[in-house]
Design a protein around this nucleic acid. Structure first.
Length: 604
RNA sequence: GGGGCGGUAGUUAAGCUGGUUAUAACGCCGGCCUGUCACGCCGGAGGCCGCGGGUUCGAGUCCCGUCCGCCCCGCCA
């Protein structure tokens, strides 16, 4: 192929098919860069070698599809070191034009600056570009590495339905009307969760599937409405053994897809683990990017000790603790600080920009303090009121030195954490601790373990399952299920890579008695449980082995491993942030006839 | 549902405090050129300034609405 020709091919006669990448017309001779999926090679049309081919070359234009027969020649001094095939060129003996091309809407080149709208509209042209050829190929390599690995480890690949019964909870489903049962709908599977558990009950022991999942939720850089998971479930397994299997898979994928040996980073073959609580405290989320430090400092208990430390806004929070109003079933309020080192040399304007950033995250503001000589605070709304004792305690807790700047957030825990977690990432980028895009061969994996089984829903005023209702609680937490549900930890885990959640799963709950307690804590009645999950509950009573599993986000993983900027770069035909597919124009309105046949009407 | 940024030749952008013929680069078309490789040189064509309304003597520019794209919050494994 074009991109594969090297010095060793000199003298050979070759036949090449490809697209015209570039044309340099010298009047007496014409150079063309011919492109195929492997790369470029320079092709020379010389009338003294082949007059007919030369005449054709004079009319050839960009993106024409041509075939040539010619001889590989040494370019000697004229070699082009910037091209992999630069040592050779083809002298054409015969040429054919298979198809002409209209002038393309944008040029097919590596550094295209055409905006993404245009590129998505002409996706098939964008996919001709070297960069996307590489990421889509990486994705293909990743499928192969995954299948090879699991087959070698005794797994079976089993397909599960896409058209399934609508089950409550979790992500919003896409609905598909069922013509044969008017008025009823299938849901598109948001994951094979229930089916893979049932496969364990069936005795399939080790299951995996590379499977499409559908979720009707708002999109992001790393989220598409249809995406692909590497779905895994195993029986007679514990958390540690499952981690080992998945770690092995990732070592394999990085080796075969990116030629990166993770053993250099993780010599014992294992990834580090961190408890959920610790991650929230230090980083404000459950997917910390460990490529840089810049950790949060939780000042809540310190503020309580100092009775607000003279700062009225803090006192409002600490009073909640003092008055005994603080209750487990109320959203917690906390105080957190983030230290920007003096080396960052942050100007006041830049500080104001950070505040704007915090506000865009839903924060009321971003209080700051510049630490001066002797630990005094300046340029701060707190400088006047803060007691010297509290100031000193904060300086010590955050390890602040003169020149550093402290940023504060306080209020509802969830919001403080969101704002501070995003602020940390933002600072990491603007201070150059991590690149704006890409990963520069820094791969920091982390298992997040032992999260709470329930989380309090302010909307619904009750506890809801943080993952799903079939996650196994820690054995020593079972008695807390009715006493203090918020404190129950469970065997759920997320795998994080450079701040992206690339997978998550749990050891499942297969004990009907504990299951009943969980439903009770969730305030789900027997009837409700039966009507919603009856088939699974029945299966769990008919000889269900202990089991657990995980699902890895194949798109995100491919995005990271291929150094892509967005999940759209690793999906051949992705959708925009509003769920539109710009090439074909989906989604589209249904015709009245279609709706009539399905017995549904549209209100739009 | 909310916040931010953006939409001007085929493409990417410039266009200030409203002003006369809307610039540039690449691409495209024509001509010249046998060693270029971002080839070069000469000439040319190309515009519903996203769309709709408003203010004004006059709108790419100001105001309102709307559509589309990107990033984020909410939402989501």
């Amino acid at each position: 192929m074009c991109g594969e020709l090297r010095e060793e091919h000199i003298g050979h006669e070759v036949v090449l098919f490809g697209w015209v990448q570039n044309r340099r017309d010298h009047g007496g001779c014409v150079f063309i860069d011919l492109r195929d999926r492997e790369g470029l090679v320079q092709v020379m049309f010389d009338p003294s070698a082949a007059q007919e081919a030369f005449d054709l070359a004079n009319v050839m234009r960009l993106e024409w599809v041509v075939g040539i027969r010619g001889k590989v020649r040494d370019r000697g001094e004229m070699r082009n070191p910037r091209l992999a095939t630069g040592a050779v060129e083809i002298v054409v003996l015969e040429a054919t034009v298979f198809n002409r091309s209209e002038t393309p809407p944008f040029q097919i080149e590596d550094n295209t600056d055409t905006n993404e709208t245009k590129r998505l509209e002409y996706r098939y042209l964008d996919l001709r570009r070297n960069k996307l050829q590489r990421t889509i190929t990486a994705r293909s390599d990743l499928y192969k590495a995954t299948r090879d690995y699991f087959f070698e480890h005794g797994f079976r690949e089993i397909e599960t339905p896409f058209l399934i019964r609508n089950t409550p909870g979790g992500a919003r489903n896409f609905l598909v009307p069922c013509r044969l049962n008017p008025g009823t709908f299938y849901a598109l599977a948001e994951s094979p969760q229930l089916y893979k558990q049932l496969l364990m009950v069936s005795g399939f022991d080790r299951y995996f599937q590379i499977v499409r999942c559908f979720r009707d939720e708002d999109l992001r850089l790393d989220r598409q409405p249809e995406f692909t998971q590497i779905d895994v479930e195993m029986s007679f397994i514990n958390q540690d053994a499952l981690f080992a299997i998945i770690e092995g898979l990732l070592f394999r994928i990085f080796r075969e897809v990116a030629r990166i040996d993770l053993l250099e980073l993780y010599p014992d073959g294992r990834f580090p683990r961190m408890r959920f609580e610790e991650s929230m405290r230090r980083f404000g989320n459950d997917k910390p990017d460990l490529r840089f430090a810049l950790e949060h400092t939780d000042l809540t208990s310190l503020a309580v000790e100092h009775d607000g430390g003279g700062i009225p806004l803090f006192k409002a929070i600490t009073d909640i603790f003092k008055n005994g109003r603080y209750r487990l079933d109320l959203p917690k309020e906390i105080v957190k600080a983030l230290l920007i080192p003096s080396s960052a040399n942050l100007s006041r304007t830049e500080g104001d920009k950070l505040e704007k950033f915090a506000r865009s995250m839903g924060s009321e503001g971003l209080a700051r303090a510049k630490v001066g000589e002797g630990g005094v605070w300046t340029q701060s709304p707190f400088a006047k009121n803060i007691t010297p004792e509290f100031r000193e305690a904060v300086n010590q807790a955050t390890n602040a030195r003169p020149g550093d700047i402290l940023c504060f957030q306080f209020g509802k825990e969830a919001k403080v954490n969101t704002v501070m977690a995003n602020l940390r990432l933002h600072l990491g980028k603007i201070l150059g601790y991590i690149p704006e895009i890409g990963h520069e061969d820094q791969w920091r994996f982390l298992w997040i373990v032992d999260p709470p089984l329930f989380e309090y829903s302010e909307e619904e005023g009750r506890y809801v399952a943080a993952h799903h209702a079939f996650t196994r609680p820690h054995d020593d937490c079972v008695e807390l299920l009715d006493k203090d549900p918020g404190k129950v930890l469970c065997h759920r885990y997320d795998l994080v890579l450079n701040g992206f959640e690339i997978g998550g799963g749990s050891i499942r709950l297969h004990d009907p008695e504990v299951q009943a307690k969980v439903f009770k804590a969730l305030n789900i009645s027997d009837e409700e449980a039966q009507s919603k999950f009856g088939f699974l509950l029945k299966a769990l009573r008919l000889g269900a082995p202990p089991h657990g599993g995980i699902a890895l986000g194949l798109d995100r993983l491919t995005m990271l491993v291929s150094g892509s900027e967005s999940i759209r770069d690793v999906i051949a035909f992705p959708k925009t942030q509003q769920g539109n597919e710009l090439m074909t124009g989906s989604p589209d309105f249904a015709s009245p006839g279609q709706l009539l046949e399905l017995k549904i009407s549209s209100l739009a």
